[in-house]
Design a protein around this nucleic acid. Structure first.
Length: 824
RNA sequence: GCGGCUGUGGUGGAAUUGGCAGACACGCAGGAUUUAGGUUCCUGUGGGUAAUACCGUGCAGGUUCAAGUCCUGUCAGCCGCACCA
């Protein structure tokens, strides 16, 4: 074994050997326990960035560690390769998106191989390829057949820059998530997936996922936004037209002094037609329509509205209340109509103040600091019901139940659950995506393409102008077809699917990626699913992770998988920062993985990124830190090279004799214990690596001693190499070969802890006086409380400290400390 | 506004169950090797002091023999949602 660590020679060599041996290939094996380790697949933007390196290094350590522990590990990779950037590049360079995409994929595959990740490349999936999107289309048709895909004309979020619609989830603060352009509204006929049918199950499913970070589950819960309440039907005065409202606080209904309806509500026309306030209202509606979401939400506090001139009858009191238009009521939530209770709701309170509407106190908080007849802000907490007829004096939470019961019997209310979650708009007016396999027939309406005709191939004869509707309309061959139902001429849907669909089931396709008869074989999928560990950025906490859960539940329901949740455990990795900021081209603080690999090698890059911070935390990039990791690898390499020479042919059996032998044996076995626990239980790779560093330091110390046990050193060296291998696989293989290890270190067995080496004769305990450390003492291990107390109090040094003081109390914790509480 | 997370040396971070705060590294200082620089190896390194004492985990309280860890309040930063009735 050379003494000089030469990563430029080592790394390509082992990458070649792994490829030749097909070392990372896995198949289903019912006799072995499986482990499905998955990292979020990348978008092929061109080159890997440090976030990728971090994500995939974390996954690779786990995959390799579990493989060494005898698990049958599925560790696949692929590319989420449909999407806008390819199309923009096509417009700019006049190349086909497929050309841009495939060359980027080739480059990124190459980089992933250079980093030594243990992927089963045979299972690679690329979402832009026919053998993938064919099944995407097939799944869409299943949604359609089960009544979960529908087309509807609706005002939608429109990005004028991307020239396409966006899902609610893709609008961030009124702007396009992707390009930051202000989003406008446009009325379009679009395909939706009925994710709202799964709202409750998506919520309940979160409780079955203890292995998910709490904050991610909270985000999803908030997004789904379940709220329990009551739907109460008011009637329009002068007609019997019902006006249902949704409220979570039916107990405040006696305080409803007005009603508010969203200006977009279809009923508005009936309300204002012929009203003396008609003109006013039309002006208000026009103005509301013109406002973008940004304007509408930026003026959060200031409420606006217009009186319709009409009244509704409060079914609880029989009283008339005025009906207003106001844009603070959203058409998309509840019924689009709200009962205005200024006493109990801050928004209604603001509105009532502005339009001088009465405020009736209906819940008494019994608090001195609140004057219920002269509120400064709405009171929305609990208390005793007042001014509410027969409900007076009840606890308001009880009143909710009582009123729900009474009102339901009276026939004007029902308990109701509402969600913030909206159906998922999946049509995109873009080219580079999966064609929606639907056909519009003048006689039969929308009909899915026959399954045996799939895939509906994305045409290549299109023009990329970047304007208007989907570029697919420019295809001469695509649009015209025949109806699968009646055979008459019909037209194909030209929109493509949101790329989030592609990534909502890829974990299942990895289980059987080459299947051309079915989306996958159920038996294979059931062997591998669920994903035991999923790793990726927290930015996908809502969108991707909820869509994938939705898909999985649906696919479960139609009998395609036993899994009800796709990802059993989730690790959200922190961002990679430089100078406290996210790496970005515009700031110019990007460190490319390429230059690091070139300068220090892949192993150093991996080691540093795992050592610098625990995986969930943000990671501050440090050039000197990288240097340090590189030096450590050199230090280990020299140590192992020396050991290979020194202990060649020495059996790895030993009996530790002296103090130093015992110490090294103890540290060695303790390190194995710590590293195993840190990897598997805590994902704290940073502390796992520091434990290994401590072992290396100890071995350096030990080998310079006079009377050393070579069997012990040989054993320590072997185990050191085994423990390092998952983190730094290339140097791991090289050192394994150097010390005469059999086969690949990748396939070697993870070292076991010899518990007998962890038994100590004596332990150091701390002696505290009044909680301050005053003394340390070496006592026999296993000494009990009483013995410990006795031993410590008998010590001369302790006696000296106690001189002239009275012992009040002694607390003895075996193996840890003795605290003597004294007075005087 | 609501919800969540995080505050520890010059820096990244450790302390897993309330039990020696600062493991491991970076940086810095000194020494050895070297013609020199680099590399490598060793030593030191929270503040404070001659040395002790003492002070130290954002801040202010509290519980406890004992608090970075538990409780109450508060400040700062980050993230998510945001007129959801």
């Amino acid at each position: 074994m050379e003494r000089q660590y030469n990563f430029k020679k080592i790394e390509p060599r082992w990458q070649k050997i792994w490829a030749e041996k097909d070392a990372f290939h896995v198949t289903e094996d019912p006799n072995k326990e499986k482990f499905y380790c998955l990292e979020m697949f990348p978008y092929p933007s061109g080159k890997l960035h440090m976030g990728h390196v971090r994500n995939y290094s974390i996954g690779d350590v786990l995959a390799r560690y579990l493989h060494m522990n005898g698990k049958n590990v599925l560790h696949p990779i692929g590319f989420d390769s449909f999407g806008l950037p390819a199309e923009n590049a096509a417009i700019k360079n006049q190349t086909h998106p497929a050309v841009w995409t495939s060359s980027n994929i080739a480059e990124m595959e190459n980089q992933l191989r250079q980093l030594g990740f243990s992927y089963d490349w045979d299972r690679e999936v690329c979402t832009y390829k026919e053998d993938y999107y064919r099944w995407m289309q097939w799944i869409f048709i299943q949604f359609y057949k089960h009544g979960l895909a529908y087309k509807k004309e609706n005002p939608v979020n429109w990005c004028p820059s991307c020239q396409t619609v966006l899902a609610n989830e893709q609008v961030v603060e009124g702007r396009c998530e992707r390009c930051g352009t202000e989003v406008t509204k446009k009325s379009l006929s679009q395909w939706y997936l009925k994710i709202t049918d799964y709202a409750d199950r998506l919520l309940e499913g979160l409780d079955t996922l203890p292995g998910w970070p709490e904050h991610v589950k909270t985000m999803q819960r908030n997004w789904i936004g379940r709220s329990e309440g009551t739907e109460v039907v008011y009637k329009l005065k002068g007609s019997d037209t019902p006006m249902p409202v949704f409220t979570t606080r039916v107990d405040t209904i006696f305080g409803a002094t007005f009603m508010v309806i969203s200006p977009e509500h279809p009923m508005v026309e009936e309300l204002i037609a012929g009203s003396p306030e008609e003109e006013n209202c039309r002006a208000y509606i026009e103005q509301a329509k013109k406002q973008s979401d940004i304007e509408r939400t930026s003026t959060v506090k200031e409420k606006t509205g217009a009186f319709t001139g009409r009244y509704a009858i409060n079914p609880a009191t029989g009283e008339d209340i005025p009906i207003y238009l106001a844009d603070y009521v959203l058409m998309g939530y509840g019924t689009g109509i709200v009962m205005g209770v200024p006493y109990g709701d801050q928004r209604d309170f603001d509105f009532a103040k502005k339009y001088d509407l009465p405020i009736i106190p209906v819940v008494d908080p019994h608090r001195d600091d609140i004057d219920i007849n002269n509120l400064k802000e709405a009171f929305s907490d609990d208390g005793t019901v007042i001014n509410s007829g027969k409900y007076n004096g009840m606890d308001n939470r009880e009143a909710i139940k009582a009123m729900q019961k009474d009102f339901e019997e009276a026939g004007f209310a029902v308990p109701k659950v509402n969600f913030k979650l909206r159906d998922w708009l999946i049509s995109r007016q873009r080219y580079w995506g999966t064609p929606i396999p639907m056909i519009n027939c003048p006689d039969c309406g929308w009909v899915p393409e026959k399954e045996e005709n799939l895939p509906v191939i994305l045409p290549t004869d299109v023009e990329f102008t970047g304007k208007g509707e989907s570029p697919i309309v420019t295809s001469k061959t695509f649009v015209d077809t025949v109806c699968p139902c009646c055979g008459k001429p019909a037209k194909r849907e030209v929109d493509t699917m949101d790329t989030f669909l592609d990534s909502s089931w890829y974990e299942l396709r990895y289980c059987d990626n080459k299947n051309d008869k079915a989306v996958w074989d159920r038996e294979k999928a059931d062997y591998w699913m669920n994903v035991d560990q999923y790793i990726g950025g927290v930015e996908h906490a809502i969108l991707h992770l909820m869509y994938a859960r939705f898909f999985c539940k649906f696919l479960h329901d139609i009998g395609l998988t036993k899994a009800e949740e796709p990802f059993q455990n989730l690790l959200t990795q922190g961002m990679v920062l430089k100078d406290g900021k996210k790496m970005s081209k515009s700031i110019g603080n990007v460190v490319s993985p390429e230059e690091i690999i070139e300068k220090y090698g892949a192993d150093t890059a991996r080691l540093f990124i795992l050592f610098a911070a625990p995986p969930e935390k943000e990671l501050e990039w440090s050039d000197t830190g990288v240097e340090g990791s590189y030096k450590f690898l050199g230090r280990v390499y020299r140590l192992v090279a020396d050991m290979a020479e020194l202990t060649a042919g020495i059996p790895k059996r030993y009996i530790p004799e002296g103090k130093d032998d015992k110490q090294l044996a103890y540290i060695l076995n303790n390190t194995i214990k710590r590293v195993s626990e840190d990897i598997q239980k805590r994902f704290n790779f940073n502390t796992a690596i520091s434990a290994i560093m401590e072992l290396v330091n100890e071995m350096y110390r030990y080998k310079e001693l006079e009377d050393i046990n070579l069997g012990l050193l040989a054993d320590a060296t072997e185990k050191l190499v085994l423990m390092l291998a998952p983190f730094v696989p290339h140097i791991g293989e090289e050192m394994w070969e150097g010390i005469g290890g059999e086969g690949l270190v990748y396939d070697a067995k993870w070292p076991e802890v010899d518990e007998s080496m962890l038994v100590k004769d004596s332990v150091e305990i701390v002696v505290q006086i009044n909680g301050k450390v005053r003394e340390k003492a070496e006592v026999p291990a296993g000494l009990d409380k009483a013995g410990l107390e006795e031993t410590v109090l008998a010590m001369d040094s302790v006696k000296a400290l106690m001189e002239g003081k009275n012992v009040v109390k002694v607390i003895a914790v075996p193996g840890k400390l003795v605290n003597i509480v004294v007075k005087g």
